[in-house]
Nucleic acid binder design. Structure first.
Length: 254
DNA sequence: ATGGTTGCCTCGCAA
């Protein structure tokens, strides 16, 4: 079994303790991190090494930044989304433990007036790249913070998000097009009727009230989906102090 | 109660 998790860490250095504690406790093999918010040189590579993980990092000062930590060797690292000239650090991919695993931080897209276009352009390029990975015998995993509320039930109060870029019809359509290439949504395949969230506002009381959004996802090509055994969200880290506003999403492959 | 929180590295922006 391979345990893969995606976790928007909202600054790896600010929340390192929670991340490393959770990584060990959950016995994760491969962790996809978004919003590390630091350059490569400031990423705590040695701390991950001591915990038994190799890292591939695409950093950026202050904003964005993505990294992969794996108990296994990381090969053929791809930094940046192929086919898109982008100065923001939002995509990194590596081959590890017999899988090709891509880690994406899709643009938030708000405010819609000025930033939705970039989000849609990004998703279009992502879909084009995903299309090249859907077929064949090689297992391909695409996980990350998609910044997409796929369905109304994925928000505690969808009325607040009707005009938001997270639930915008064009954004939902772009995500759906990716799924329709032949990808399986790992969480939904295992829990078709569950209500679960991967993000909670830092505003007081939101976690306890379970007022969140499901915006982090893991997609599997058919070869990977054949091996899907379990998936879930771990809300426990969100109860801690000095923690990200996101929680990890996990899937297990045979 | 027209608010509420966090990170970055500066007092504004992004989420």
């Amino acid at each position: 079994m391979v345990k893969i998790a995606t976790y928007n860490v909202n600054s790896i250095n600010a929340h390192l303790e929670v991340v490393l504690d959770w990584l060990a406790a959950a016995d994760i093999d491969v962790l996809l991190m978004q919003e590390i918010k630091c350059e490569w040189g400031a990423f705590p590579t040695m701390m991950f090494k001591q915990a038994g993980y190799n890292c591939a990092v695409l950093g950026q000062k202050s904003y964005n930044g993505v990294a992969i930590a794996s108990k296994f060797k990381l090969d053929n690292v791809v930094s940046g989304l192929p086919g898109l000239a982008d100065d923001q650090a939002r995509f990194i991919q590596a081959d590890t433990c017999g899988l090709t695993i891509a880690n994406v931080y899709v643009p938030n897209g708000n405010p819609v007036e000025t930033k939705l276009d970039y989000k849609l352009e990004y998703m279009k390029a992502l879909n084009k790249y995903a299309a090249s990975k859907v077929n064949g015998s090689a297992a391909f995993v695409l996980g990350g913070d998609f910044n997409v509320i796929i369905e109304d039930r994925d928000a505690y109060d969808i009325a607040q998000y009707r005009t938001n870029a997270l639930a915008h019809p064009s954004v939902r359509a772009a995500f759906r097009q990716c799924c329709n290439l032949g990808f399986t949504n790992a969480f939904r395949a295992v829990h078709p009727d569950a209500v679960a969230y991967t993000w909670y506002s830092y505003s007081r009381g939101q976690v306890m009230a379970d007022h969140g959004l499901l915006i982090d996802h893991i997609l599997l090509n058919p070869s990977a989906a054949d091996r899907l055994r379990d998936a879930g969200v771990d809300k426990s880290v969100r109860m801690k102090s000095n923690t990200s506003d996101h929680v990890p999403l996990i899937c297990e492959l045979a």
